[in-house]
């Protein structure tokens, strides 16, 4: 099972608990998550299904490469972290 976790900054706006889901790619894993928590989708993806410009996804600590199609493969027991792509000081 894949573990999907969200930054606490997002939990202030929408319920997004840590879940264990199935999926061979980031997109499949996120779709499984959004199936359970549909309100979260718009906070992470834009209208065209791309990762929002200032968001970041890490798979076992490695940054997502395909922010458009979320096609990066995911190991069966991976941990996916969704965080803000912070800037500034």
């Amino acid at each position: 099972m894949i573990t999907v976790r969200f930054t606490r900054n997002l939990q202030r706006h929408v319920a997004c608990p840590t879940l264990r889901v199935m999926g061979a790619t980031v997109r499949e894993a996120m779709q499984a998550y959004f199936h359970r928590y549909p309100a979260v989708r718009g906070y992470v993806l834009d209208d065209q299904g791309r990762l929002r410009q200032h968001m970041a996804i890490f798979i076992d600590g490695r940054q997502l490469r395909d922010a458009t199609g979320l096609s990066d493969p995911v190991p069966p027991d991976a941990e996916i972290d969704i965080i803000q792509s912070l800037s500034g000081g």
Binding site: G42, D46, D47, H54
Partner: peptide, 28 residues
Amino acid sequence: HGHFGVKLHRSRDGGANWQEIATPAYPE
């Protein structure tokens, strides 16, 4: 919300309570 995008909320009691509603979304 910047990082998290634009969201709409509606109140039917003058602002005492708010509920998130749909956000306009462009088609694919």
